[in-house]
Design a protein around this nucleic acid. Structure first.
Lengths: 258, 258
DNA sequence: GCATGTTGACGTTAAATTCACATAAAGATA
DNA sequence: TATCTTTATGTGAATTTAACGTCAACATGC
């Protein structure tokens, strides 16, 4: 409920203020059971706000800027989580995974911590904050010009950096989809994403069904270019069948948390 | 994991206080087994805080690592601030400034906020955190493989990214200086710094005088390659004159806070 | 090659975390 | 109001994990 959210926010603020806190300190400070504290911080860790250690929690290492985004919450969180979980089917331990700057891919990053060892490549600052200093995980950040709107590095420097690399799998998202075409609003972002497509063996697109039948300024790519297009449930049967007939490897993901 | 962290911090404090301690003293002082002490100091040595000798540990002389503990951040703070303030003389509004991953350059970044508009380029995550979302400041992050010890992106990806850019001025530091040669400990870091040298019109080196008459593993560059070498006061007159005779554009910076 | 310091493998212990279940509170529905 | 559902919390056992110690093999010679 609301009360739990407030409590979580209090916990996050407390941990962020102190940098690192022992679980028992939290138990004492908030006067609740250890189990409850665990449940709260598990959720905060899922959101990427905190990181759990044995016996303590810390803020994400680059908490400086992460804190500004820490409650940039959860528009369609359930959908993103469902897509992210489904996307794990396309990742195996030991692979090189490329993630774009979408919040959906960011959700994937939190789950990737369970698929180590891995090499992860991204241009997203939020995702970088999640993956820095994780053991058994080789992290490569794509540099470039910082763009606050996307909280990511983009531009020529970024495109060239991508072109030097090869990933087993790319997990990305799009602004809008109409017919079998995916769109992206920003011209510089679309170039980075297209470079990522070219640098990846397998390509997975994650899109909320609400993005269908919309357009954005720039064409990203055709849905048939992806090895899998994961969409949240809610797409009409007729539309789904039409996409599959067009050769799109469509997969509908159930949102409901089992 | 947490208890071990605290124990490691205690050990580090103890060693730093005494300068050099025998392992058996640590065993006795902390009442744990020799093996445990070894494990702790191995980790501290890996973090660059301590150095292992046979039968003893000393503090690591080169105060270059950003990553570790709270006291490390404040080591030689006054010197770094003085150098950073002096370095501002070489930066003008509107220029492109490149900063390396040193904590000294990070100190410069905090002061650059008063020289806007600027374009700043760096591979340091700490510095990136400072400069993200600053108005009137174009920020370009150099990507690459993340290295926790330096809290920076390094490696081939980073070197190539640097090679694409040109900066008006580079502000950087070194691990050690002997004669007219500057050294860097890490082979990958030195390559990034050398790429930065090649990509910059003007080059400024900032070094604490305590780093003189020491060496590190890799040769970075000759002091005469820099357009200015800023050193904190404490260098002997004879040594200063000798450097100037060798063609080094030396500038002694007073540490005393006004 | 001796004495001392160091490393690695393994087992033990203590602790943290998770799980299953029970309880309590808040909302919804009729 | 009564009761039914949903959500938050607590309890204690079961499981997992980390820290440490011991001993034996190895390396080194501040």
């Amino acid at each position: 409920m609301i009360k739990a959210d407030e409590r979580r926010e209090e916990i996050a603020d407390y941990v962020i203020k102190l940098g690192q806190v022992r679980i028992d300190d939290l138990v004492e400070h908030f006067g609740v059971s250890r189990m409850t504290i665990h449940r709260h911080i598990d959720r905060l860790a899922q959101q990427g706000v905190l990181r759990k250690l044995h016996g303590a929690v810390t803020v994400q290492p680059s908490g400086l800027y992460e804190s500004a985004f820490r409650y940039r919450v959860t528009v369609n969180r359930a959908e993103k989580d469902a897509l992210a979980r489904a996307a794990l089917d396309y990742v195996e331990a030991g692979q090189v995974v490329m993630l774009d700057d979408s919040s959906t891919a960011n959700a994937v990053a939190t789950l990737l911590l369970d698929v180590k060892p891995l090499t992860v490549v991204t241009n997203s600052v939020s995702t970088a904050a999640l993956l820095i200093n994780v053991d058994d995980l080789d992290f490569i950040c794509l540099g470039g010009q910082y763009h606050g709107t996307y909280n990511a590095y983009i531009g020529i420097v970024c495109e060239n950096a991508v072109a030097q690399l090869r990933a087993n799998v790319l997990i990305c998202s799009a602004s809008a989809v109409t017919g079998t075409t995916a769109f992206i609003q920003d011209p510089n972002v679309v170039r980075v994403k297209q470079a990522m497509m070219a640098a990846s063996v397998k390509r997975i697109l994650l899109v909320d069904h609400a993005k269908f039948d919309r357009i954005a300024l720039h064409v990203f790519d055709d849905l048939t270019s992806f090895d899998a297009v994961l969409v949240t449930e809610g797409l009409g049967d007729a539309q789904a069948q039409s996409l599959e007939r067009a050769g799109v490897k469509l997969r509908i993901v159930k949102t409901k948390a089992s």
